[in-house]
Design a protein around this nucleic acid. Structure first.
Lengths: 227, 227
DNA sequence: TTTCCGCCTGTTGTACACAACACAGGAATA
DNA sequence: TATTCCTGTGTTGTGTACAACAGGCGGAAA
């Protein structure tokens, strides 16, 4: 019988690691839309050759976050205003579905994580930091989607969120929206959601979430109109 | 000024071609779930090396149609009953959304194509053929999704449909469901949908579609229960 | 001055050889 | 006989060299 033995990193682990890192960099604006990525540089950064890296890039391209052009480069995509609106409308409807299809009151572990996030966001209100805000957003959405047991729905909500995340952060920066204020609104959303979940009202939690998606989109539109 | 000159196949064209061919083979049961695909064989079939082919496989894997295992092989995925039910429930809700988000009455070209499909399906009723049935299904769904102008929604509906298509065809074969009967039901759905669209009632067309998704899932469940 | 052509550079795309891996079959051993 | 290990075979994963391609620059010609 072998010792359990630290499972050493397999090909899939490396892939997941590279994928997560790059996706976060894109979604958190470390690579703003339009940025050109160098396969060579990224490969050497991750200590591999271009071949495994390209697998990651292909995946990110299939999710609409990247676009490769032969002989030119690999670019972080931007999103035009029309598609953004369609995506937000769809996200609102899907948010509502989160409370309808297989409502799944949080188990203790999930509850724990959501409360921990609430505390972290409150703490962030004092020292606003747009990037950290984005990170907590990603984390919260990820955990929140656990309120449905419908896996395909979770996946879709997550992908659509990640696709709009960076545009939202970008417009926040461009319109000089008050980060501290957004953080407070976000903290309030989490607490509202937690109150609903505390009494097992998953449907209401989903509707609260939907409301906040709608309002954050509206704030974004108003702010960009002022420019 | 150059002659328009037959654009010769670029890398992207080759990719699209291979992707479409393989996806159809998976969704139409030419490669039933569990089939092992040989990268070597497929590469030589398409007249390329493994490298460009693998790009296609990675994409299909990211869509959940394939799964590659190091040192073992690349396999067509199967879907367990639980996820299938979740997917169908989600598809029903999304079908309804098709009539709500950006309802888009068909333009003459789309109308033409839908009517042509109606005729083809009617013709098929006389000479039942499961694979051709699957093909027409894929075509119809693709065109039908044009009733919404919401592109992300279209994409999602299409992907979810393709993911369940082969399972449905497979269970039809396994339970020895009468193909001719299914074809007639399908033809009736198309005609109902066309009647709704003829008077510009996109919402009703979407609800009719939703109804048929629901009923076809129920028939599938009943048939598999009898086994 | 303007336009056009060709070269040069840097990028992604492709081919191929080899490494890492899983699994089956058989031989050696308890 | 049962078990264990080893090795052979076939698969996917990786590294690397090169091809295909786009775009910019510069010089020549109109």
């Amino acid at each position: 019988m072998d010792v359990p033995a630290e499972a050493l990193p397999t090909a899939r682990d490396r892939f997941d690691r590279m994928y997560t890192v790059l996706r976060n960099r894109i979604c958190l604006l470390d690579y703003p839309p339009g940025t050109r990525l160098s396969e060579e540089d990224l490969a050497s950064e991750f200590g591999t050759s271009r071949t495994p890296l390209r697998r990651v890039l292909v995946r990110l391209e299939s999710e609409g976050l990247l676009q490769s052009v032969h002989g030119v480069g690999t670019f972080v995509t931007d999103v035009e205003i029309g598609e953004l609106e369609q995506t937000y409308q769809l996200r609102m409807e899907l948010a509502e579905l989160l409370g309808v299809l297989g409502p799944n009151p949080p188990d203790p572990a999930l509850w724990e994580r959501l409360q921990a996030l609430s505390i972290e966001v409150r703490a962030l209100a004092n020292v606003p930091d747009a990037r950290r805000f984005g990170e907590l957003n990603v984390d919260f959405f990820h955990e929140f989607h656990g309120i449905t047991s419908n896996l395909p729905l979770r996946d879709i909500c997550e992908r659509l969120f990640l696709k709009t995340s960076r545009i939202w952060l970008k417009s926040m920066a461009a319109a000089q929206i008050d980060v501290a204020k957004e953080v407070r609104i976000f903290a309030d959303e989490i607490d509202e959601v937690l109150r609903a979940l505390a009494i097992g009202d998953v449907r209401s939690a989903a509707l609260i979430h939907r409301t906040h998606i709608s309002m954050s989109y509206t704030r974004m539109r108003l702010a960009s109109r002022k420019l």
